[in-house]
């Protein structure tokens, strides 16, 4: 291909996952070079939060991270595929703008997150109080889609920020990337957690298992990270993640301790209790504060980023808790034990 920057390279990434419908199947055929990309009308007719659309979008985005085995790296900037991605993104973003709750101001959106009710009912509350080891393993498998590339989607916003916002964001990202120590990179700490839980740490290993709701949370980060026009929403999203992470991590660390998951599993969440208590402060004061001092017109986008994060996290929580309370797996394909575990 003329636009190849170097000889076509069949990426070292994970194998392409199993398609979940005709749109994701067409994207995979196109990536393999065995068929045309999906048609516009197919994209329009697919359920926006469903498996097929979310996987198709995930496949498009993953080309910007690690790609897939046997898929040319040139596909990352393939105009026909970018056109498909834009159509998928339009559906997703339109739905998010319609469905996410909306706060009138950034302050109001943040204020709701800064309340920590004693009788909370989220996933971390459930896992803390009564989570079993098999549920912790499922939770880690679902979350591995993000945590094995933790902080990567947010790094894209750095060139779009200036001054206080940029230095604050860069400082938090540096912390996420281990502060210069490879053994402290958060993605590495998560891989160590997965090993404690008897999970396979190979990148992309649990893509087939992950539910559409889990894919949507990661697709949101990629969507907001890749588009400069959505930098306000990316910053709002990041703030929401950091603000909610510290207390949730305390509960998840407690769940790991109670179930005897292992020291690395406890350490991942223990580390996030303290780290994210700091990150929250930096993101609120320096990143949001700095961005809105420079670009006050982005305030509604920042609020949208906060609200939409809660919207998709709530959908994932419904999926996880709905399945677990019924005694069912939350995953699309069951986990195999990589080591003997007693249940």
């Amino acid at each position: 291909m003329a636009h190849d920057l170097r000889p076509a390279h069949g990426g070292e990434g994970p194998p392409l996952p199993t398609a979940r419908g005709h749109v994701s199947a067409a994207v995979e055929e196109y990536l393999r070079g065995t068929g045309p990309p999906p048609r516009q009308q197919d994209v329009v007719g697919t359920a926006v939060y469903g498996d097929d659309l979310q996987l198709a979008l995930y496949l498009c985005y993953e080309l910007h991270y690690r790609g897939f085995a046997g898929v040319s790296e040139a596909h990352e900037w393939d105009p026909d595929l970018l056109r498909v991605r834009a159509a998928l993104e339009h559906r997703f973003l339109t739905a998010l703008r319609a469905d996410a709750p909306t706060h009138d101001s950034v302050e109001d959106a943040l204020a709701d997150l800064l309340v920590e009710p004693v009788d909370g009912t989220g996933v971390s509350h459930y896992l803390c109080a009564e989570g079993e080891l098999w549920q912790l393993r499922e939770y880690a498998a679902q979350r591995s889609l993000y945590h094995l590339k933790e902080a990567d989607p947010h790094a894209w916003v750095l060139p779009r920020l200036w001054g206080r916002a940029k230095s604050g964001m860069a400082a938090v990202e540096f912390d996420e990337y281990g502060g210069g120590r490879p053994e402290r990179v958060h993605a590495r700490l998560f891989a160590d957690l997965m090993t404690d839980l008897g999970l396979d740490t190979t990148y992309g290993r649990y893509l087939d298992a992950a539910s559409a709701q889990a894919l949507a949370t990661v697709n949101l980060m990629s969507l907001l990270g890749l588009h400069r026009a959505l930098r306000g929403a990316l910053v709002g999203h990041f703030a929401a993640v950091e603000i909610t992470s510290s207390p949730a991590s305390r509960r998840l660390a407690e769940a790991m301790r109670r179930t005897g998951a292992g020291p690395a599993a406890e350490h991942f969440y223990d580390e996030h209790v303290e780290a994210d208590a700091v990150h929250e402060q930096v993101v609120r004061h320096d990143v949001i504060g700095g961005l809105l001092a420079e670009e006050p017109h982005l305030a509604p986008d920042v609020a949208f980023g906060i609200d939409v994060t809660g919207h998709l996290e709530d959908r994932l929580a419904d999926r996880l808790l709905g399945a677990w309370r019924a005694g069912r797996s939350s995953l699309r394909t069951p986990l195999r034990s990589e080591m003997p575990l007693t249940f």
């Binding site: 800064l114 309340v115 920590e116 009710p117 207390p247 305390r250 208590a277």
Partner: peptide, 16 residues
């Protein structure tokens, strides 16, 4: 904080 002297966000309000 349960990790005193480091903040663990325990200062947060329990109700709005």
């Amino acid at each position: 904080s349960r990790r005193y002297p480091w903040c663990d966000t325990s200062h947060r309000d329990r109700a709005k």
